[in-house]
């Protein structure tokens, strides 16, 4: 029994007559503290899987078991709590609250959790101690993404889900973000799942899951994942 078990996961979107099988019977499992990269072409169903895993979306069928919890069976309220306590999300477009300073954005997340990490500490951790009182608009994209990661980490979640966190960034900045994520997984023992269609990034993962047309094409275990510092694209 793995930390995360996904079995026969299906997600079907009904667009009138047409059925779009975004995820069509996916099975995989992830261990605790693993850094997983989900790889696949656009429209393959990566985001859908992640959303279902993060409790933002519901599966049409199949099982999603996280730390023994059947996520697919959770009620709306339980899903919120699941998101609240167990999940940290990082988006491609940061999604910071513009009206809050960097620190406040982190606090926004940490204040709702039962055992959050100290917001200031996390800010230090992501290297933004100096900029913590700046508003998102005053920060660069990378810095904003760091704030977003800090916000996710501060909740001290079981899972850190990142949907193309480097998508809007240049490779250098992206690399630093990946470093941060790798560090998080390694030092904090947090399970981190990163979506990307950049196969280079896959090298840093402990496990790479290839998705194609809603199905798993390949699951590759990286015995020796490369340091994020060392990759380049």
């Amino acid at each position: 029994m793995s930390y995360i078990d996904i079995k026969k996961l299906k997600k079907v979107y009904k667009m009138g007559e047409i059925e779009i099988k975004a995820v069509d019977g996916v099975n995989f499992s992830i261990d605790k503290g693993e850094l997983v990269v989900i790889l696949g072409p656009s429209g393959a169903g990566k985001t859908t899987i992640l959303n279902i895993l993060g409790g933002m979306d519901t599966a049409t069928s199949g099982q999603v078991i996280v730390d023994g919890k059947h996520v697919e069976k959770l009620s709306r309220k339980e899903l919120i709590n699941y998101r609240r306590y167990d999940i940290g999300f990082v988006f491609q477009f940061y999604n910071l609250v513009q009206n809050l300073t960097a620190l406040e954005n982190v606090e926004l997340a940490s204040q709702i959790c039962t055992n959050p990490l100290n917001a200031e500490d996390v800010m230090k951790e992501v290297g933004l101690e100096e900029r913590k009182n700046n508003f998102p608009a005053q920060l660069s994209g990378g810095e904003q993404q760091r704030v977003a990661i800090a916000r996710a980490i501060a909740k001290n979640p079981k899972l850190l889900l990142c949907d193309e966190p480097t998508g809007a960034l240049d490779s250098k900045t992206g690399k630093s973000i990946l470093e941060l994520l790798q560090k998080t997984a390694r030092t904090m023992g947090m399970t981190v799942i990163i979506i990307t269609h950049n196969s280079v990034i896959a090298d840093i993962a402990d496990k790479v899951i290839q998705v194609k047309n809603g199905t798993i094409a390949e699951i590759k275990i990286n015995k020796k994942p490369t340091d994020a510092k060392e990759i380049s694209w």
């Binding site: 709590n81 609240r84 999300f89 999604n95 926004l108 709702i112």
Partner: peptide, 16 residues
């Protein structure tokens, strides 16, 4: 709406 969605993702209860 994005802000609100973000809050929801962060796990804010409906009431919150």
């Amino acid at each position: 709406i994005r802000e609100i969605a973000t809050l929801k993702v962060l796990g804010f209860h409906d009431k919150e």
